[in-house]
């Protein structure tokens, strides 16, 4: 899980793994690892081990250390902060150097606050040409399962 601070990475994991949500912001220090088995159409289920890494808008040495061995990246942005989308894309570019083959999916979170979104629909339309993009809400659960399912589906075998 990669993204700027406060975009909702920990909340997305809590929604996905434990079906819980808290609107109180608590910053993540270091990393918290969770896992969940995900069913896949006509294939064996896969166990996703989720590394919820402290939010950064650029990849530092510590974050890069956590990335080693990752098979997929769930990039998370906050729709109400356009700068966080730029940060997510920067992080994608930077992590490509370490993980050239990792699957990448973008979750633009806080869809329940759409009236405050700064990220325009045309921007996401452009981005969808590059990678799978999901509008998500950890608060309501919208788009959360599909985003993780897209990762599960994209993983071999």
């Amino acid at each position: 899980m990669l993204g700027d601070f406060g975009v909702g990475k920990t909340s997305l994991v809590a929604r996905f793994v434990r079906s819980t949500f808290s609107d109180k912001y608590l910053t993540t220090v270091g990393v918290k690892v969770d896992s969940k088995e995900v069913a896949r159409a006509e294939r064996e289920p896969v166990k996703l081990v989720l590394w919820d890494i402290a939010g950064r808008n650029a990849l530092d040495t510590v974050s890069a250390n956590y990335l080693r061995g990752a098979a997929a990246l769930l990039l998370v942005a906050d729709g109400t902060r356009e700068a966080s989308l730029a940060a997510a894309l920067d992080l994608l570019m930077q992590s490509r150097a370490l993980l050239p083959d990792a699957l990448a999916v973008l979750a633009v979170n806080k869809f329940d606050l759409l009236e405050r979104w700064e990220v325009g629909a045309p921007t996401l339309a452009q981005l969808r040409r590059l990678l799978p993009v999901f509008e998500t809400s950890a608060a309501t659960g919208t788009g959360v399962e599909p985003a993780f399912a897209a990762i599960a589906a994209g993983l071999a075998p």
Binding site: G30, V31, K32, V33, S35, V49, N65, R68, G69, A71
Partner: peptide, 22 residues
Amino acid sequence: DALRDLFVGLELDQQQVLPFVE
């Protein structure tokens, strides 16, 4: 098992440090 999850995809014959793991 949970500890093992931390090292999925990593080489076990190389020294590794993971700071601040919850």
